[in-house]
Amino acid sequence: MIDLDHVTRQFDGKRRVVALDDVSLSIPRGEMVSIIGPSGSGKSTLLNLVGGLDRPTSGQVRVAGQALAGLPDDELTRVRRDSIGFIFQFFNLLPTLSCLENVGLPLHLRGWPRAKVRERATELLELVQLTDRLQHLPEELSGGERQRVAIARALSIYPPILLADEPTGNLDTQTGADILALISDLHARLGSTVVIVTHDMKVAGSCQRTIALRDGRVVEDIRRSRTAPPGKVVGG
């Protein structure tokens, strides 16, 4: 589903920084993978490249069989909006839009009819247990609720790939566990490929596979036959 072939990403400033150094890896369809490593190890860079938010300096990134290098901006955006859902550490909800509008945002951008957008967004907010918050603005929600809205938004197109950058990093332990349970549950139900960047070993342990990065290189790639229990599943 996701293939990186000798991918390097370097940043040229006053000092050249190699964020990813000749990384090759493959993530099959439906796998739930965590990426761990210390700060500056290249985790987020890897996620950005997979998500088409950034472009490699060299090497090739393929998502769902499509090579991203060389795609024009709008084509890259189309790959993103058709195949990838994002969950951010700081939620990145638009503060002026209600929960319903935030979740419906990617669908509106795809030109869906209003009624269909509303129907799908409501359905997803039900899925993340926020039926009673449809018209609330993000600032009226708790951190956990905001992240659930962000997850619902990421799932709005039922993407084959879900990318999460420290999804529990900005939440307290219990809420973090709940969110992780929700992601695991959705993964199980929807069968999406999930890539989670995290510092948290508990989160990493709940995934089928963990890739460890250090100084821009893959230093460990662990596959588990059984995953650790993710905690209470919201609405489970």
Binding site: L53, T77, R80, R81, D82, F88, N92, L93, L94, I157
Partner: peptide, 16 residues
Amino acid sequence: RREIGVLKAVGALGGQ
């Protein structure tokens, strides 16, 4: 800037 970044991340095309 961030709002526009989010829009792009969730699929907004240049024209949008």
